[in-house]
Every structure is written in C-alpha cells, then in structure tokens.
Design a protein around this nucleic acid. Structure first.
Lengths: 205, 205
DNA sequence: CCTCATAAACAACACTTTGTTGTTTTAGCA
DNA sequence: TGCTAAAACAACAAAGTGTTGTTTATGAGG
C-alpha cells in the first residue's frame, strides 16, 4: 500500500505550480469572474488542453486551492486536543495560543489571503472562512459558558458579532500589509472582545 | 427645463422592471458570475437585443442597481444634519436613531440585501457596504473622541472591528429572516459595542 | 544507455455566449 | 389617426469552452 500522496511526476508538479501562480496573479489583476481558462493557460505558458487534464474548470481549480488552504487554516485555529475553558480568554493581555497560531498561518500565506479576501477575490471565500471561525468560536463559547444564560442576548448573535469582527481585523491587517506582529494582533483582538470597542476608544484599561 | 427624471415611457419602465426581477432571481439561484445575459433575457421574457438597449453588460446592470440602493442605504445610516457627540452612544439601551433607520431600510429591501450579501451574491457588494458603514462610524468616532488617544490601540483597527461586526450582525439578521425588530437589533448592537462580547456572554449587565 | 509510459503540446471540432446591426412590428402619445 | 420610439426578430463575427485524436518530449526503471 503506497502513501496517499503519490510521489508525483515532476512534470505534473510543475504544471500544477504554474497554474496556481497564474491563477493567483489573475485573481489579483482582473478578478476571479473575469478570468478565462485561456488567460490562465497563456499566463502559465501551457497548452489549454493541459489545463483540462488536471481541472474540470476554473471553479474546480478554485475549489481545490481554497480547500487545501482552509484545511490548514482550520487546523491552525483549532483548539489543542486538550483545552480548558480558560483558553478562550485567560486575561486581557494574554491571547490564546490558537489566536496567535492563526495569525501566523495567515502571515505565512499573506499573498494568498490578501488576494482572496480582496475586492476582486473569489466570491464565496470570505464566507467559508467566516464559517470556520464561527464554528470554532461557537465551540469555545459553549465551553466557557455552557448554559444559555438568563437570555441576555441570543448566543448566535454574539458569536456572529465576534466572528465578523475577527475576520474584519484579519482583513484589515492584510490590507495594511501586516504592520504588526501576530502576537500584537491576537492581543488587540482579545482586548476588543473583552472590553468592547467603545471603552477602548475612550481610553479604557 | 424638465425634471431630471423624465416621465419615462411605460414600455421602458416595464422592461427595466422585468430585467431587475430576473437579475435578482438569478443571483439567488445560480450566482452573479454564473449568470449570462441570455439567462436574464429569457427569464425576463424579452429579446436579448433589448437588454443591450439599456445596459452595456451585466456588470453595468449590477453597478446601477447597487449604486441606487447603496445611495439610499448611506442616506439612512447617515447622521442627521445636526448631531451631537452623544448620537454615537447615548447609553447602553438607547441606540442612535441612525442605527434604527438603517435596520428599517434594510428590512424594507430585505430580499435585495439577503441575495446580494448571500453566498452567491455580487462579488464586491459587501465590501462596498462595509466601506459606507466604516466611513460613517469613523466620522462618529472622531466626533466622540477627537484626540487620537494615549495610543491605546490604532483607531483604524477599532473602527474596522466595529464595522465588520456591524455588517456581520446585519447579515445574520437577514439570514435568519429578521426574527427581531429593527429597534431590538440596533439596541443589541450598541450593547455589544459598549460592553464587549465576552461580558455579554458571561451575563453582564 | 535504452525503452516504455505518460505528460504535455498541437490541432481541429461543435457548441455557447457575446456584442452589434439592419429590418420589421408594436405600443404609447398627441 | 398618424408619428415616434421601443421592442422583437434575424443574422453576424468574434471569443471562450470542453473534448478528442495525434504527435512530441520527458521522467523513471531496467
């Protein structure tokens, strides 16, 4: 029984590589929906038929690239196998390790994420990322606060609030070309969640 | 000098109307990028050439529909001509009028926003909405806290956090088919901004 | 080094969508 | 009842798509 990942012919490896590069460049330049298979193969300097040898169409290509990256993302953001309730928020200035790992993963693939989350990015991408973040945050929330409280507010609403804020901060960081460290970003995010945006702006502790 | 809006031939009015309906339905069904001009004209039961009589292509159509709706949105969310610093946050349970107006505007065009913000929606749409919200919130923030504080955190970061959270809550509300009133949603949003998500989940006041 | 398998290149195909144009029909308006 | 303009109809070249059959070249193993 060989490994699930076959050794992979170097010719194939090269082809997949140039297709991926051309794809990313074109998403950046003309946007996913404006791009044609012709564009991709011309840019990659391969024959058009070769493209169809590996992908069904550009949606197939997009899907596979995104799947593989988001798998990594989910792994980076996931809680460690044994986690405690205090992983969610230890205290205002010590972000959970998973938050830091996540920013580091994104930094390691900054170009990919910047392009995909950018204005010309792939339609469903940010939605998929949001879903991953949401599921993880919802799980943390259920661990930290197992009881649906005395109806302060629907939990779903709070989770969505936090999720979108989270992704917004990540996107902002990418748009500004990551002027801060992963640890700094994770810390600010935790502080915003803990203290509330209003208090932060007013100069709260 | 006649009015800027010409009385408009009823035939044109009808055509624009069926095109708009077909467009929205198709964004919902197959997504903006999968849709062709043919799809639109077949659905609208008009000749394909007639489409080109009014729009250059589907991007032109999309642009005009979105422009006109977002103009209304911006107007609804904008601060009233004479505003005070306390319009941003009076107190935890009295949301500013502009927040309520905004939720009401969205409710009045729920189908449009739900489709456009949905997973098959128009690529740049949520980005454009976010920009409008951000500009408005940034303005409020500068009024409420004119001095870039003792470097608690970059203001831009906080504004982005709040903006994305804001849009996320709106989207969530639409996805759930608006189970709460506009006033309720505006109130929860203010409370989240003021108290922070963590405190809310813990059952804070 | 040689041979075999197969990836990639090349070429041609029918098919769809696009944008445009010239002509005819239809509907509003005065 | 006419005039005007919108919409329908028909046809076009151009471009992209997905596929297939054939040839070239490249990597892997004996």
């Amino acid at each position: 029984m060989s490994d699930t990942t076959s050794p992979l012919d170097p010719r194939i490896k090269r082809t997949l590589h140039v297709i991926r590069d051309a794809f990313l460049a074109l998403v950046d330049e003309k946007g996913f929906d404006q791009m044609t298979i012709r564009d991709i193969t011309e840019r990659a300097e391969i024959n058009r038929a070769t493209f169809y040898l590996h992908y069904r169409d550009k949606y197939d290509l997009q899907g596979r690239l995104v799947d593989s990256m988001l798998r990594e993302f989910a792994a980076a953001f996931e809680l460690p196998p044994a986690f405690g309730a205090d992983d969610f928020i230890k205290d205002t200035d010590t972000p959970p390790a998973s938050f830091i790992r996540q920013f580091e993963h994104i930094a390691a693939h900054a170009h990919f994420y910047k392009v995909m989350l950018g204005p010309r990015g792939v339609p469903g991408f940010s939605g998929r990322m949001e879903r991953i973040i949401r599921d993880s945050l919802a799980r943390r929330s259920r661990i930290a606060q197992p009881h649906e409280d005395q109806a302060v507010m629907p939990r779903e609403l709070v989770v969505r609030y936090v999720t979108s804020a989270h992704l917004g901060v990540v996107t902002h960081w990418l748009e500004e070309d990551m002027p801060y460290t992963a640890v700094y970003m994770a810390t600010q995010l935790i502080r915003l969640h803990a203290l509330g945006a209003t208090r932060i702006l007013k100069g709260g502790t």
